[in-house]
Design a protein around this nucleic acid. Structure first.
Lengths: 249, 249
DNA sequence: CGATCGTTTGAGTTTGATCAAATGTGGTGG
DNA sequence: CCACCACATTTGATCAAACTCAAACGATCG
């Protein structure tokens, strides 16, 4: 089945074994509240009341903050199957804006629905573990921007996106779509768009990665991983729990 | 009372009104499991089993990651009253190391104890909201390192520490202790120690902040806040819930 | 009283930013 | 199909922030 919630279910299933009933519930609540957003449309704005849990079913959404003088830092990518932290419903306002890149399909779950979901033990467990991983990603980005060179940063981000997309079946071979401009990559990695461009050219020159026409092709994953000192440990739940194959398909 | 858990209780009480009974329980579990750590002693190591929840009762602990070649990024400060995210108990291993700066008093709570705490609704709520704030801090640090100048970074961090310490009563007037070297500040803000030094001198020259003998004095908080474009919104629970005064004292 | 650790200062270098212009590229409408 | 437009990428030249290295200076402590 390629139903609305399939990426989401697949993502959560990496963090706890979900029963068929639990998968059905996720599917149901997701398909009941689908919104479609156009490219570059704001999905949420800083200061909005935090009364809806956002789940990205398809597309790419990013969370960002603007400084008063226009500088922008992208804080997180929410890929297909990603969601916000349910605990953010416990505070009055959302802290940062979110924006869709390319058309996106988003489920907005009410507090009641989330509470209903969390009564399923494996769903609650999966969401909690998943949120811990999201925090790890933010920390890794801090390390990225703080300590790594432009070259390593870009390589590291590409490795991360590859692993995250692979987990929900959005890669073929070592390729994936990435509807980002170089300027947006710059605001993610704290580099100027010009420098992103030069660094991408360097990656291409070394036959590691090509990024053209919104598509990333990793030519030599092992070398890229080494060059960026990428260690995917922060992305995986160390217990290799999987939902059984027939449930995913 | 200046009992073991008083900073912790004070921190949590900012996020939900705690009953006297709940405060008593926090006090009890904290005082039952106090460990003392010497300066620069590792409190936890990456890869350790994540079976204890760490609460910093007194002192300063930081969370950090080392890159293979020795570069280091400090990811978070845990001030007196701060704690790790209880949900980290749901994953098998801790992801990053923690280290004490100056002597620290730390409570290590077992999973059972944490579960007992979470049966108290206000404690569970306070911890959840508090963890959301911790995530906000990490995001703010990402913005700091990604977008702000050295001068702004340092000013912003000092404002943040001031607000966080003030919330648990560890400031007098506009001064607070900060047992950090300039090198450690550098690894926090992704600057070299030499550049931290020059930037501190600049802050001093402008009569904004003095940092000497492990003590920070903010001479002009308003000007500092403006210079660093510091907005404390990410540090406060917007609902101004407070435990009643006599419970805190 | 050395010894150690942290801070301060100077000089030279590097990384990546900025500015400006040229070059693709994809879509739209005539 | 082509002209045109908007947008993104590429390239070059210059510049500034912050780094590195090296050395001197100053505390603090056994």
């Amino acid at each position: 089945m390629s139903a609305a919630a399939s990426r989401w279910i697949r993502r959560l299933a990496r963090f706890a074994a979900l029963t068929l009933e639990e998968q059905r519930v996720l599917e149901e609540v997701a398909s009941n509240s689908v919104f479609r957003h156009a490219s570059h449309e704001n999905v949420a704005k800083a200061g909005d009341p935090a009364d809806r849990l956002l789940v990205v079913l398809e597309g790419l959404v990013y969370r960002y903050r603007l400084l008063p003088d226009g500088r922008r830092q992208i804080l997180a990518y929410l890929l297909a199957g990603d969601m916000c932290d349910p605990r953010e419903l416990l505070i009055p306002q959302v802290g940062e804006s979110m924006c869709a890149l390319g058309p996106a399909e988003i489920a907005m779950l009410s507090v009641n629905v989330v509470q209903r979901l969390e009564r399923h033990p494996s769903i609650a467990l999966a969401m909690a573990r998943y949120s811990v991983m999201q925090q790890s990603i933010t920390r890794e980005w801090l390390i990225n921007v703080g300590q790594r060179t432009a070259f390593e940063r870009l390589g590291h981000l590409i490795c991360e996106l590859y692993v995250r997309l692979e987990a929900v079946g959005l890669t073929q071979d070592h390729m994936f779509d990435l509807p980002l401009t170089q300027a947006e990559l710059g605001d993610t990695l704290a580099l100027s768009a010009v420098h992103v461009n030069r660094t991408l050219m360097e990656l291409r020159r070394l036959k590691l990665v090509t990024f053209q026409n919104r598509q990333v092709v990793i030519h030599d994953y092992a070398a890229l991983q080494a060059a960026a000192s990428f260690d995917p440990a922060y992305l995986v739940t160390q217990e290799k729990l999987r939902v059984s194959a027939e449930n995913l398909a």
